[in-house]
Structures are given as structure tokens and as C-alpha cells.
Amino acid sequence: MKWYADNPTRFGLQVIFDLVALGWAALWIWIAVTAHDAVLDLRAPGDGLVNAGSGIRDAFTGAADKARGVPLVGDDLSGALGGGTRAGETLIGAGNAQISVVQDTAFWLQVALIALPLAFLLITWLPLRLRFALRAGAARRLQVAGFSDLLALRALSSLPARQLARFSDDPAEAWRRGDDEVIAALARRELSALGLR
């Protein structure tokens, strides 16, 4: 495969478009990471709930343990304080659920913000680059191997009719006759159309 043309103008345009494609990908990756971090900032209330729930649970658990030591009513008092422990655990569960939702949202937003723009590149830019690389590579191999007649045949099948009309006689007939001058001219035009020397 040949990724870039020999023609300086076409080479420059290819480099510019490749840099634009890389810049596009880098921009969306940066946007995705920034959005991910911004969404993760929304987990602060969940962290607050977990911290508050832990504090309440620990306070009520400690009070319930100490209440067991009170004569006569210790077990009843400890049981009543156990409700506070369960309330703290409920707050911890709610906080963890909120944190989980925020983290999942941040992850999938980041994936979408990277995948969609990269899919756009894979659908638009990459096929054009691959098509050029394959065609230019095949043409270069034909040129190096000395198959000018095959390059000329490619020119006959791919060049616009207005370019073929510039020949003094019918280029297809001249190709069939094996006219070396017309074959060389057609081969040069095929290479030139691809931006090759």
C-alpha cells in the first residue's frame, strides 16, 4: 500500500486531512474525558449520604452496645436504638446507589462521546484513505513491474471521457493495437490521476 501521493499538492492535502482526522479524534477524546470527570463530580451527594449514614449507623450501634449494659431495660433500649442503625444502613445504601448511577452514567457518556465521532471517521475518512492506498499501491506495483499496458487499461476504464477524448485517435483502439506511445501516455495519466510520478 502507498499511503501518500508523490504530487506535492495532493500529498499536502492528504497530510492536512489526516491531521484534521487525528485532531478530530483527539478533540472528542478530550471532550469525553472532561465530561466524564464533570459527571463524576455529581457523586458528591452520594458520598455525603454514605458518610452521614456511616456516622448514624456507628453512633446508634455504639449506643445500642452500651445500652445492653443497663439493668432491666438494656435489651429493650438496645433494640430501640437498633432502628437508628438500620436507618444509617439505609442511608448508606441510598448513597451507594446514587454513586453507582453517577459512575455508570459517566462511563457510558464517555464511551458514547468517543465511539460516535470515531465511528464517523471510520465511515467517512478511513475508507477514502484505504481506497487511495490500495489503488496507489497497486498502480505503483504495476509501474515497477513494467506493466504499462495494464496501467493504460486502468486509465481506459477509470479516467473521465473528457480526458480520453484529448487523444488524437481512439485510445482504446490504440491500446488494442499495442501502440507504445498511447500506452505510455495512458499509463502516465493513470499515475497522474492518483498523484503518482
Rank of each mutant, 00 (worst) to 15 (best):
G79S: 13
A97V: 06
G95I: 06
V101Q: 14
R86M: 11
V102D: 03
L122A: 07
F147I: 02
R135D: 09
I92F: 05
A80P: 07
F107Q: 00
S100N: 15
R154N: 15
S78A: 07
A87Q: 07
G69D: 04
D169S: 15
A165K: 01
V144F: 13
P171N: 07
F107A: 01
L122E: 01
G88P: 03
I114R: 07
L159K: 11
L130P: 13
G83F: 15
V73I: 08
A87S: 09
V144A: 11
Q110I: 04
I114W: 08
L164C: 04
G95R: 10
T90H: 11
A94T: 05
L72R: 09
A136M: 11
K66G: 01
A165N: 03
A67Y: 08
P160Y: 14
P117S: 00
V111E: 02
T124R: 08
E173T: 10
R86Q: 12
D75R: 12
F147Q: 07
L91S: 02
L77N: 01
D169N: 14
R135G: 01
A87Y: 13
A97D: 07
G82L: 07
N96R: 15
D75L: 09
R166N: 12
L121G: 13
T105M: 09
G146R: 13
G93L: 12
A172G: 10
T90V: 11
A87I: 06
D149E: 11
V144H: 13
R86E: 10
A138Q: 12
Q98G: 12
A67I: 02
R154W: 15
E89R: 06
R68H: 09
R135L: 09
W175F: 08
L72H: 11
G83W: 12
P71L: 05
I123C: 06
D104K: 06
A112K: 03
P171M: 02
R131K: 12
V102K: 08
R166L: 14
F147N: 03
L156H: 10
P127D: 06
R154Q: 14
R141P: 00
S78G: 00
A161D: 07
F167V: 01
F147H: 15
L156G: 02
W175V: 03
D149G: 02
W108C: 03
G74W: 00
A133E: 04
L151K: 02
A138Y: 10
A87L: 12
R141C: 07
L116R: 01
P127I: 10
D170Y: 00
Q98M: 14
A155C: 10
L150M: 06
E89T: 10
A138M: 08
G137E: 07
R154D: 14
A174H: 08
D65V: 12
F147D: 05
G79E: 09
A106V: 05
W175R: 02
S148V: 08
L122D: 04
L126P: 14
R129A: 06
D170R: 00
S158C: 06
R154I: 09
D104I: 06
P117C: 00
A174Y: 03
L142C: 14
L81F: 04
L118E: 01
L113C: 08
G93M: 12
T105I: 03
L142S: 14
N96H: 15
I123F: 14
V70I: 05
L134M: 10
R141F: 05
V144M: 08
S157D: 04
